[in-house]
Design a protein around this nucleic acid. Structure first.
Lengths: 197, 197
DNA sequence: GAACTCATGTTGACAGTGTCTACAGAAAAC
DNA sequence: GTTTTCTGTAGACACTGTCAACATGAGTTC
C-alpha cells in the first residue's frame, strides 16, 4: 500500500460525509470501519478528532487561495464581482471543506502554524485584489474596510446558500450564477449605473 | 417550584455554554448535573437533544424579529445601515442563540412549524424594510436581490466577527460600531457620496 | 371521596463515541 | 545487525444520548 493511503482514504470519506451531513455527527470509528481498519488506525495519521478537521481546513484554504489568486485580468467592479462569484462557487463546490474552515471550535488555528499560514495566504489574495483596486494611495483603513465588506458579503451569501435558509425564505433560485452576480451588483455598483435586473 | 423552572434553568445554562464553547460539546447529562437533577429530567422538557437547540433558535428568532422591527423612523440608506448595525449587535449580544439559529443540522426547521413561523417573522421584518425602501413599484426580483444582499452582508460580518477569523486577519477593531457602519457605508452608499473614513 | 390521568421526576441498562495504554510487525536509519 | 520509527491491532475507560420501567404528587372526572 502506498504511504499514507489510509490517511487519504479517511480524509476523502470525511470530506464527503461532512458535505452531506455536516461535521457534527462525524465518527472516527465509523470512518475506520468503512476503511476496513481497526478503530485506532486513523489516529496514527490524525492526532485526534480535531486533527482531521485541521487537515480538511488546510486543504480548503489552499484551494480557496488558488481560486482567488486565479482571478486576474479584470479590474475594479468587474474583479470584485468575479471574486464574489468565485468565493460562492468555491463554497458550494467544496461544502465539506467550507463547513469546517470557519468553525473555530473544530479547527483551532492558534495551535497550528501551518494552518494559519494557508489561511493567511487565502486572505492575502483578497487583500491584494482590494489593494490593486483602490490604488496605491489607499489608506490602511480603506483597505481593511473594503476587504471586510467584500469578505462579509461573499461569506454571508455562501453560508446562507449552503445552510439552506436563504432559498427557504426567498424561494428557489433558478440561475444561481446570475443571482449571485445580481446580489454583488446590488452592493458594489454605483446607484446611478445599477442595471435593472 | 414554579412550573417548568427546570426547563428555564437548563435553557439558560445551555445558552451560556454555547455562547462560550459553541454547540458541539454541549452535554445534556452535564446540564442535568449542574441543575442538580437526574440525567433524564431535562428530557421531559425537551424531546431530545435537538429539542433544546430548537427552543434556543426559536427564542433567538423572536428576539431578532423584535430587534429588526424596532428599526423605524429613518429611511433609505440610513435605515439600511441601522439594520446592519442591529443585526451585528444582536449576533454579538446573543452568541448562544446566533450560533444555533442558522445551523440546520442542529435545529431542523422542516419538522417544526412554530420555529418556521418565528424565523419567517424575522425575515419578514427585513423584507418589509426593503420593500419600504424600494418603493411600491419595485419588482419581486429587486426585492429578493436587495434583501439577500443586505442579509448576506450582515450575516457574513456577524459570523466572521463571532467566529473570530476577521480580527485575526485584519487586526483588532478598536470601535466596533464605527467599523460596522463603515463596512455598511462602503457597500451601500453611492460611490460619489461615500465618505472618506 | 375514589379512581384516573398526566406532568415531572428517578434509576438502570444499552450501544456508540473519543481517547488512553500496551503490544506487534514491517520498514527505515544507523 | 541492531535500533528506531511508522503503521497497524486489541482492550479498557469514562462519557454520551436514548430507551424502558417505575415513583410520586397534583388535578380532573366520576
Amino acid at each position: 500500500m502506498a504511504p499514507s493511503a489510509l490517511r487519504e482514504t479517511v480524509l476523502r470519506a470525511a470530506v464527503d460525509y461532512i458535505a452531506v451531513h455536516g461535521p457534527d455527527g462525524l465518527s472516527f470509528r465509523q470512518l475506520a470501519a468503512e476503511a476496513g481498519v481497526s478503530h485506532q488506525a486513523p489516529y496514527h495519521h490524525f492526532v485526534d478528532r480535531k486533527g482531521i478537521f485541521q487537515a480538511i481546513a488546510s486543504e480548503g484554504f489552499i484551494r480557496l487561495a488558488a481560486t482567488l489568486r486565479d482571478v486576474e485580468g479584470e479590474t475594479g467592479t468587474d474583479r470584485a464581482l468575479l471574486l464574489l462569484e468565485r468565493y460562492v462557487d468555491f463554497a458550494l463546490d467544496n461544502r465539506g471543506h467550507f463547513r469546517v474552515m470557519f468553525r473555530s471550535e473544530l479547527c483551532v488555528m492558534e495551535s497550528d502554524l501551518a494552518l494559519q499560514r494557508v489561511a493567511d495566504e487565502a486572505f492575502g489574495a483578497l487583500v491584494d485584489h482590494v489593494q490593486a483596486d483602490l490604488g496605491p494611495h489607499a489608506s490602511l483603513t480603506d483597505i481593511r474596510v473594503r476587504a471586510t465588506a467584500m469578505w462579509s458579503l461573499a461569506h454571508g451569501l455562501a453560508t446562507l446558500l449552503i445552510d439552506g435558509p436563504l432559498e427557504v425564505k426567498i424561494g428557489e433560485i433558478a440561475n444561481r450564477r446570475a443571482f449571485v452576480r445580481a446580489v454583488g451588483a446590488q452592493m458594489m455598483l454605483d446607484q446611478s449605473t445599477r442595471p435593472i435586473i
